[in-house]
Design a protein around this nucleic acid. Structure first.
Length: 592
RNA sequence: GGGGGCGUGGUGAAGCCUGGAGUUCACGCCGGCCUGUCAAGCCGGAGGUCGCGGGUUCAAAUCCCGUCGUCCCCGCCA
């Protein structure tokens, strides 16, 4: 007998157009409804679900079927009897009358239910991720991710970009995030690092004459996890030579808009709005503002100039500021309002003044009797307060006030979900941030071009960089900059950072040398693809859009990675475990 | 490094605060009945070291301490 194809049609595509056709459909038993004299199967494949009707007396094996058995079914596509159509199903007008049924592969009872209704613990879903993929929602997420990357690729291909792969075993340059290290067998005692980004390699491509590059690149950062951070993650990385900010931003806008179109079917307005870093900090108290709602931060220092209220007066005399937000109709109890004070203190403020505006304009507030009516009226006007609104005021150094109010603003005002998409560019980041010990660290990375070298040298704390972030609904989606292509400028940056010539040479010498061979001006960007997708599908964590993510401690519950290796493997690498580590392994890892 | 939540048959929850027999609900699983269901229905059944260890107590899923796992947040993430 000639080998029969296992499938002639996809389950989810069968409609009344197929009436009367003999088809063969292969997939999994999504549901079985056994009525004794008649059995209904919902047969699922990658395209969807179709109902199969089986007469158990006429078709062998029908009663053996259980959920998630892998089967192939042959039969005729027929119209469902009048009154039994299912309008909720794409294939609900038809059914397959089974004539032959083959179990290709039976299934053990499932470790968890595959319906989207059940809210199974993530750990179990990760341990059986392949079953998780059979759930409609996860299957759709995989398709969404593929559609998004395909749209990005075709957009960039059309614009003449070259997709170039850069190495994932590179030299470690201790700077920024902790590197993931890989020991070398051929050079015992030496290590590769996995890239935190393709940054320097893409700049080398610019120098190499590849004037438009992109890559959907895996990146690694060995830092603690969050719902939006994994140890390995994916970036859309791109760079262009003879480019400035505008070229980068237009290209990123096109790529992101294509992804959004592919995933959501909506067309974004471009260009995205731009906000300077200073303005973002002033108005929203963060460099990644969520502009889907108001509640902006307002400076109230003028209202309290010369105030008799000691708390504010001493702050203002000390060069501080008073700022506030109008949190609107919160309707919080006294204890709820006091809890906000704890939040503010937790964020570094010395305190928080809350006030609820009464119908007559007076304040219900712990400080009401210390503040004059002219001051409360002034605040009400500045914050456009209505009766019933809750006003939150913080007085301190500007560098403290903004983040505290920004945090409260997010906590109190942030919308649920991501139905609206509000992209924006935050531009003109500072070149340097101050470190805890009063030193300077690059705000983006040390290859970012300052607007003015003179300014950077003379006033490094105020100098602005040609660096920009892309922000979506309060999440940082990525960052980029115009790069330094002049080795003299690069030297000056290292100098301000306190990196000696010798030090720079030993760490980045290979790259600095490349800058001396006619390096073109260039600029680029990297978009966090996982974060973008998580927002587009409104997933609470990027784990939901990463096919095989890790848990918070970096483990994979399915493969049990990371795992100890054999002594022989270590010896080959010239490595030995420290005694206390070896002892710990002996205790909790069973003999292999 | 720090703070917090969670851990109960295969799955999801309730029980914990206020200690008293492994109790309950839904799904799944096994068996039976059933010819138009689509979360099929009805009847019956199996299945748990309440994460692990210690303590308090006549008595611990429940209270306390520790530990492991997991999640969220702060730090960290150029």
């Amino acid at each position: 007998m000639a080998e029969q194809p296992l499938r002639s049609e996809y389950a989810g595509t069968l409609t009344e157009d197929h009436l009367g056709e003999d088809v063969r459909v292969a997939g999994w038993v999504d549901r079985r409804r056994d009525h004794g004299g008649i059995i209904f199967l919902d047969l699922r494949d990658s395209s969807g679900v179709v109902q199969v009707v089986v007469d158990p007396d006429a078709v062998p094996h029908a009663q053996e079927l259980r959920m998630e058995y892998c089967v192939t079914v042959a039969g005729e596509v027929r119209r469902r009897p009048e009154g039994t159509e299912n309008p909720d199903m794409a294939t609900g007008m038809v059914e397959i009358g089974a004539e032959e049924l083959t179990v290709l592969s039976p299934s053990d009872p499932l470790p968890f239910m595959l319906t989207d209704r059940a809210d199974t613990e993530e750990l179990i879903r990760l341990e059986y991720r392949y079953l998780d993929f059979r759930r409609p929602k996860m299957a759709e997420t995989l398709r969404v991710r593929s559609r998004a990357t395909a749209a990005i690729r075709s957009t960039l291909d059309e614009r003449g970009f070259l997709e170039v792969e850069t190495p994932t075993l590179i030299a470690s340059t201790p700077e920024g995030a902790r590197d993931m290290l890989v020991p070398s067998r051929l050079r015992p005692g030496s290590f590769y690092a996995l890239p935190q980004s393709p940054q320097l390699f893409k700049q080398l491509l610019m120098i190499g004459g590849v004037d438009r590059y992109y890559q959907i690149a895996r990146c690694y950062r060995d830092e603690d996890f969050r719902s939006d951070r994994q140890l390995e993650f994916t970036q859309l990385d791109l760079e262009g030579a003879f480019w400035s900010e505008a070229d980068v931003q237009a290209t990123v806008e096109a790529a992101v808009a294509a992804a959004v179109q592919a995933v959501r079917g909506v067309t974004l307005d471009v260009p995205f709005p731009r906000l300077t870093h200073a303005e973002a900090m002033d108005r929203f108290g963060t460099d990644k503002p969520d502009v889907r709602f108001g509640m902006e931060i307002v400076d109230l220092s003028k209202v309290f100039a010369g105030t008799g209220f000691k708390g504010f007066g001493s702050v203002l005399d000390g060069g501080g500021v008073v700022r506030g937000i109008n949190a609107g109709q919160l309707g919080l109890s006294r204890s709820g309002l006091d809890a906000l004070v704890d939040v503010a203190v937790d964020q570094g403020a010395k305190g928080l003044v809350w006030a609820v505006v009464e119908d007559d304009g007076s304040w219900r507030s712990p400080v009401a009797k210390f503040i004059e009516r002219s001051e409360t009226d002034g605040v009400a006007e500045a914050l456009e307060a209505q009766p019933g609104d809750t006003l939150l005021l913080v007085a301190d150094d500007p560098a403290v006030v903004a983040p505290v109010l920004g945090h409260l603003r997010i906590e109190l005002g942030r919308p649920d979900g991501h139905e609206d998409l509000r992209f924006l560019w935050v531009v003109d980041f500072p070149v340097f941030d101050e470190t805890d010990d009063g030193g300077l660290a690059p705000s983006h990375h040390p290859f970012t071009a300052p607007y003015s070298v003179e300014e950077m040298r003379e006033r490094p704390r105020e100098a602005k960089a040609r660096a920009y972030d892309l922000v979506l609904n309060g999440s940082e989606l990525g960052s980029g900059s115009v790069r330094i292509h002049d080795p003299a400028v690069q030297e000056q940056v290292f100098d301000v950072l306190g990196i000696s010539k010798a030090d720079a040479e030993s760490r980045f010498g290979w790259f600095l040398r490349a800058l001396r061979f006619g390096a073109p001006p260039h600029a680029g960007f990297a978009v966090g693809l996982d974060r973008l997708l998580a927002i587009l599908v409104e997933a609470p964590s990027i784990r939901d859009v990463i096919p095989f993510p890790k848990t918070q401690r970096g483990g994979d519950p399915m493969t049990k990675s990371p795992s100890p290796v054999e002594e022989a493997q270590l010896r080959e690498l010239g490595l030995a475990l420290r005694p206390e580590i070896r002892a710990a392994h002996g205790d909790d890892s069973p003999a292999t």
